[in-house]
């Protein structure tokens, strides 16, 4: 009886197992994400968004660090164009992940591709690639969705809860939550010399240009940092492409 059912639905059970193991594999990461999601919610109401607008930002844009950066800029009085440009620059890294995941989705349905794109987050990529290296494609996708879905739920809930903290009296600690979160995100990036020098130059230029209008200092800092890091890593990258 059980065998007959398995024949009718080949691999259905293994996909469910894969979905669950993806969700479980993500759990330790969620502990680290919860406070950051709360900061994203807090940054919303702290910088003039309503609770509803903050929730909509988390729900539709689901943009992590870019969300926090955008809200921080709005609080500093930046214009819409600058805010949007900054958020998208920070999320340009998604292109790399999109290319990394594309083979896994090569025979997936359109619905799965759209959902898989919307749910894409940094942390799910290395997890899926390392844990499911030998798996069938449909199980890889199930694992990926399991990991992404628990992440998505955590993000939405914690940022919603955090949005009620933004209206606290403007104590220094509340205002400091955003920069400290960026610092915690920055630290693991400083793993090699190109990125270390990119960060130093970006920081120095941004401080020097802080008085410039329209958040130009942050933009200039970012581009100067990227240029510095690229200059340091250019030859090594070229050798990689030649080999």
């Amino acid at each position: 009886m059980t065998e007959a059912r398995q024949d009718a639905d080949p691999g259905g059970g293994s996909s469910r197992r894969a979905l669950r193991s993806g969700a479980i594999a993500m759990l330790p990461i969620l502990i680290g994400i919860a406070p950051f999601a709360a900061v994203a919610g807090l940054a919303g109401t702290h910088n003039g968004f309503t609770v509803l607008e903050t929730a909509a930002f988390s729900l539709f844009a689901y943009a992590g660090a870019a969300q926090v950066a955008a809200l921080d800029l709005i609080g500093n009085g930046a214009g819409a164009g600058v805010v949007i440009a900054t958020a998208l620059i920070i999320n340009v890294r998604f292109i790399v992940y999109s290319a990394t995941l594309a083979p896994m989705f090569s025979d997936a349905s359109l619905k799965q591709r759209v959902a898989g794109s919307y749910l894409l987050v940094d942390h799910a990529i290395p997890l899926t690639l390392t844990r499911t290296a030998e798996w069938a494609r449909r199980d890889k996708i199930a694992f990926y969705f399991g990991a992404c879905l628990v992440f998505w739920c955590t993000w939405q809930i914690c940022s919603f809860v955090g949005s009620f903290l933004g209206s606290l009296p403007n104590t220094g600690v509340v205002a400091f939550a955003v920069p400290i979160s960026f610092l915690a995100l920055l630290a693991p990036q400083l793993a090699d010399r190109p990125r270390l020098f990119a960060a130093i130059v970006a920081g120095v230029v941004a401080v020097a240009g802080a008085d410039l209008p329209a958040n130009l200092g942050m933009m200039l800092g970012t581009f100067a940092g990227i240029a510095t890091g690229v200059a340091f890593g250019w030859r090594a990258a070229g050798e990689k492409s030649a080999s």
Binding site: V92, L186, R195, L196, A198, M219
Partner: peptide, 10 residues
């Protein structure tokens, strides 16, 4: 690769 490091630092 350089974008997050530079943007967060700035």
């Amino acid at each position: 690769q350089m974008v997050p490091a530079a943007a967060f630092a700035a």
